[in-house]
């Protein structure tokens, strides 16, 4: 299972990668594996203001739906519309091409509340035992 250490994670299995004053968000490799083949994504509108923990969209496989939670507060500045027609990228490239939204952070200190790779790995491993 891939858990790159260049980014942070949430307990709800989103990853957050800092890019200047912005954060790129997607779902973890573990999350995509649990879901199975992604067939549909519900993305927010660009410009939407999110508070940390808000549901900003949903990702669906054939038999499951998972809400997506904002790992930090801020404004949605970009969404990955390419994945709407290529949902398989969320499975095949969860950490790269399968990113979901880009948020301009309003409170970068919130990043401290997220998990680092090791802590996230521990959570995932505990869950599968």
């Amino acid at each position: 299972m891939l858990i790159p250490d260049d980014r942070k994670y949430s307990v709800t299995h989103e990853w957050a990668k800092v890019e200047g004053d912005k954060v790129r968000v997607g779902i973890s490799d573990h999350a995509q594996e649990e879901l199975g083949d992604v067939v549909y994504l519900d993305l927010p509108e660009v410009g939407r203001i999110l508070s940390k923990g808000d549901v900003f969209g949903a990702v669906e496989s054939v038999k499951a739906v998972s809400d997506l939670y904002a790992p930090v507060s801020g404004e949605v500045v970009e969404t990955n519309t390419d994945i709407l027609n290529h949902t398989e990228r969320v499975n095949e490239s969860a950490y790269d091409e399968g990113w979901i939204i880009l948020i301009r952070m309003s409170d970068p200190s919130e990043l401290d509340g997220l998990l680092d790779a090791d802590a996230y790995r521990q959570i995932v491993e505990e869950a599968s035992h």
């Binding site: 038999k63 499951a64 739906v65």
Partner: peptide, 12 residues
């Protein structure tokens, strides 16, 4: 399109 249905999405 099963994810629209109650047994998966429940109250949504």
């Amino acid at each position: 399109l099963r994810t629209r249905e109650q047994d998966i999405r429940r109250e949504k």
